[in-house]
Design a protein around this nucleic acid. Structure first.
Length: 169
DNA sequence: GCCAACGTTGGC
DNA sequence: GCCAACGTTGGC
């Protein structure tokens, strides 16, 4: 029992040893919306097939990190909720599934290309903060979503931007 | 549906 | 390693 307590204590210390990081993750609401996440509670963030986005899930995202949930490619693009990173990285099972549209013939069990994390529902924002609205604020001029050509579906969010956006709520 | 931006692929 | 061709993302 003593050693178990010590183990738990150590992992708590490890958690405390790193500040929570902030992220934004895009999802097309027709494919997977904030309401879907609210219903499911937790969801493997599968289907990411971009190396930069994968590398962030694999190398940088940690349990308890906080996530802005963004609806993209839809009528009203907007930040709509908050979620949390809820797992360590692990192989995306869809890459091995021949029936999946995310199947990747170049991935093998021994040498997989694609990795994901689970995402857990936090809460819906009181109202969607639309892209149009975000663009109105000079303070968000260097926010990635507001920069043209931004196609990355996962990216880190500065704490100052995180706070500013949630203050709009 | 259009188009700008950008990533990936593959020939050389 | 370069670069043209092509595919995808995502706002409008």
């Amino acid at each position: 029992m003593q050693s178990r307590a010590r183990l738990i204590n150590r992992s708590l210390l490890q958690l405390r040893g790193r500040l929570v990081a902030y992220w934004l993750m895009k999802s097309e609401p027709d494919a997977y919306s904030i309401d879907d996440l609210m219903r499911d509670g937790t969801q493997p963030w599968d289907g990411i097939r971009n190396y930069q986005a994968r590398n962030m899930m694999r190398d940088e995202m940690k349990m308890e990190d906080e996530v802005l949930f963004y609806h993209s490619s839809c009528k009203i693009p907007a930040v709509v909720g908050i979620a949390k990173v809820a797992s360590a990285p692990y192989p995306d099972p869809t890459q091995f599934d021949k029936k999946s549209k995310y199947y990747d013939a170049k991935s093998t069990e021994g040498n997989q290309r694609w990795v994901l994390v689970d995402i857990a529902f936090g809460r819906k924002l009181k109202r969607p903060i639309t892209l149009t609205e975000l663009k109105e604020h000079p303070a968000l001029g260097d926010f990635r979503l507001n920069q043209r050509g931004n196609r990355l579906s996962i990216f880190p969010v500065d704490k100052k931007h995180w706070d500013f956006i949630l203050d709009l709520e």
